[in-house]
Structure formats: C-alpha cells, structure tokens
Design a protein around this nucleic acid. Structure first.
Lengths: 198, 198
DNA sequence: CATTTTTAGTTAGCCTCCTAACTATAAGCC
DNA sequence: GGCTTATAGTTAGGAGGCTAACTAAAAATG
C-alpha cells in the first residue's frame, strides 16, 4: 500500500551517479520526489495504525467521514461541505473511487453494522446510505486520537513553516495538474497534430 | 491505492468548524497533513501512469530497480547502494514488503519474462533472482520518461525551495520516527507502568 | 406509447498487499 | 548422529483497489 517501495532512500551520491548515466535525470528533483513520497508514507502509516486499532481502514474511514455530520446541527452550516452525500454514486465521486469499489466498501461496512442502505422512494434505482448509531459511535471513539496524531506529527513545525510547506506542496500539485491538462490536450489533438515541429 | 480517499480537500473554514467540536483538533496541522497526502498522491499518480504504460506497477518497478545495476560496471562503486540484493528475502527486506508479497511479485515478473529464479548451489533453501535481458530492456526503455516526469513535476521549484521542502519533510519524518519509538517504549513498559500519573 | 439511451448499482475476474500456516533445508545442541 | 530450532520460500485466504460486462429503472425521443 505504500507509494514508495523502498525501505531506505538512496544516498545523494547514488543519485549523482545515476545522473551520469541518464542525462535526463535531475538529482535534486529526484531527491525531492523521493522525500515527498517517503514522508507521506511515514505519516500515512501512523494514521493507518490508528484506523486499524478501531477496525477501520483508509477507505472505510473515508466513507464514514463522508456520511458523518458533526452532532445535531441546525441549518447553520449551509456553507460547509458537510452536506453529506448519501447515494453510493455520490460517495464514490466524493471519495474518488469507482462505484464498484464503493459497493465493496459499503458491503463490508454494512456487514459490520456501521452503515445501512435504504431505498429512495422517488427513484428505485437509488439507495440512501447512512451511518448507524454504531457507526457514529466508532467515529466518535476514534476521531480524538486521529486528531491528536495529526497534531503531534506536525508538532515540530512552527506556524510559518507549516505555511511554507503548504505553499510548496501546492506548487507541486498545480504543476501536476497543468501537466496533466497538457498531456490530455496533446492526446486530444493527436489526430490533427500541429505543424509546429516542422 | 491513494492515501487520501477524498477528491477535494475540505476548505479551511470547515476545519475550523470541526475544531470547535473537537478541542484536540489543530486546524493548521490538519491542513498540512491533508496537503501532504494530496500532493504525494498527485505525484504518485503521474509516476504510476508511466509505469502502467510500460506494463509495470510500483511494486514491479521496485523489484526491477533493486535488481538493476547501471550498465556493465567494474568494482568502482563499492560505495554505492547498487550492490543488488539477490534473494527473495533480501528483496522483500529492501522493498519493505513481506516475503509472501515478494513471492507474488517475482511470480508475475517471472511469468512475464522480466526476471528469472536460479538456485543457490550452497544452500538449497535459497534462490538467486536476476534480471533477464528483457527485464533490462524494459527498464532502460522506461527510465528516461520516469526521470523526465520527476524533473518536470519539480520544475516549478527553484533550488532553494527544493532544499527547504526536503528539510521540512525530513522534520516531519523524524518526528514520526521519534513518536513511533516512544509508542514502542510505552508499550514495552505497559506491564510496569510508571506512577507518575498518580 | 414504444423504443432507445442514460443512469445506478452489482457482479465477475484480475492485481497487489497482508497474515498465518505450511514445507523443506540448514544449523545448533545434547 | 538424532532432536530441536531457525531460516527460506510458498500457499491459502482475506481485503480493497481496478475494469468491463451486466441488470434494473428512469428519461429522452420519435
């Protein structure tokens, strides 16, 4: 499940050596890349250990969170994204997985009694998924430690360091989106390529 | 396979609202956490798309890289970590997966002709895994684009930004290790707890 | 109103990860 | 030398990803 299947990162000299053989390789880019995946894996492991203590997983937790509304709440949060999705299709979309995957997740969550499926009287193709009291309980039991772990993992960064980190990460993510868009464009235009290259 | 099962990150106001309900929650820590996993997932997706183009996956690529030695090489690299592991156990250890998982990976790589198993005459329990010429070819064919993608993803960061990012990421990883060590310690001492709490 | 298209969800089959139980070989120890 | 223990690898079974093919219901279209 980790992103980086490598226990120890290669030392920088090793990257430099590889760069001699592959002129395209940029050692410092590679270093950032490896460190990014390594740190994300490290953090994820800690979080997942906590999930596991509560018989949850990343996917199961995600579904519960999407279904969860913080306490009984009047309409005062029309602004917040807490308007829980209800149908499997909505959940799959919000979670960024396929519907087939969501079917499987809901199956096991329902089997474990954390979630239930209901029918939509207006459209019989649809289902209304909702948290059971037990699901709510599990979430309330694990969230404090979840938050506590996030805090303590980030405890060594001061406020300005956190801001800087988020900015740098955002830069990378934007670059990735830009790149994806370009690739999609160039593929769309593959049948009628530009003549710029000539 | 992503670490963050959430298409869109919650807005900061939403985190603040959650913080009102959970006093343990630190909104800025949570924000960093979410951005870290999101960016790692973004970058990973791009890399994996390239793997997939070459009929590889993260795990398969990892094994090939561990078996790979850059070109014919005399003994001049005793320093570099390129002294390839050879047995399935070594590979599993270096990759950070279980031996059972490595068995499966080698199975499919062998089936596809990228890798071969050989016997160790000295110890008949052991196997010597090695790259086939085809495996070598696949690697050489995909590495240039792999490096090119890493470069272009990181292209928007200047050298000093890369340094800063690596430093911040390293801080987080160190904090995670420290925390893990503490947890392990406290668990080891669970039968003889300190009386400090009294 | 009947046919076609779209949409919601499930199923089947594959991959990669895991743990736990197993087989075969080697090593240690009376 | 003959037990016990340790080590290398595999197997079996589970989980959660995916795609592609399917069923059922609703909507669109003529």
């Amino acid at each position: 499940m980790p992103h980086l299947m490598l226990k120890d990162l290669p030392r920088y000299e090793c990257l430099l050596e590889a760069a001699r053989e592959f002129p395209d390789m940029d050692p410092s880019a590679c270093e950032v890349f490896l460190n990014l995946l390594r740190t994300a894996d490290d953090v994820f492991d800690v979080i997942e250990a906590n999930f596991s203590n509560h018989r949850l997983s990343q996917g199961r937790f995600g579904v519960l969170m999407l279904l969860w509304r913080p306490a009984a709440k009047s309409g005062s949060d029309g602004d917040c994204a807490c308007n829980a999705p209800r149908t499997p299709a909505d959940l799959a979309d919000a979670a960024g997985v396929t519907r087939a995957t969501m079917t499987g997740l809901i199956d096991t969550l329902e089997r474990d009694g954390l979630v239930k499926r209901g029918v939509d009287p207006a459209d019989r193709r649809m289902q209304q998924v909702s948290l059971t009291p037990k699901g709510n309980e599990v979430l309330r039991a694990m969230l404090p430690s979840h938050f506590q772990i996030m805090s303590s993992v980030m405890a060594s960064l001061k406020e300005n360091e956190r801001d800087a980190l988020v900015k740098l990460l955002t830069k990378i993510s934007s670059q990735v989106s830009r790149q994806k868009a370009e690739t999609a464009d160039s593929r769309a235009g593959a049948d009628a390529p530009t003549r710029a290259g000539q």
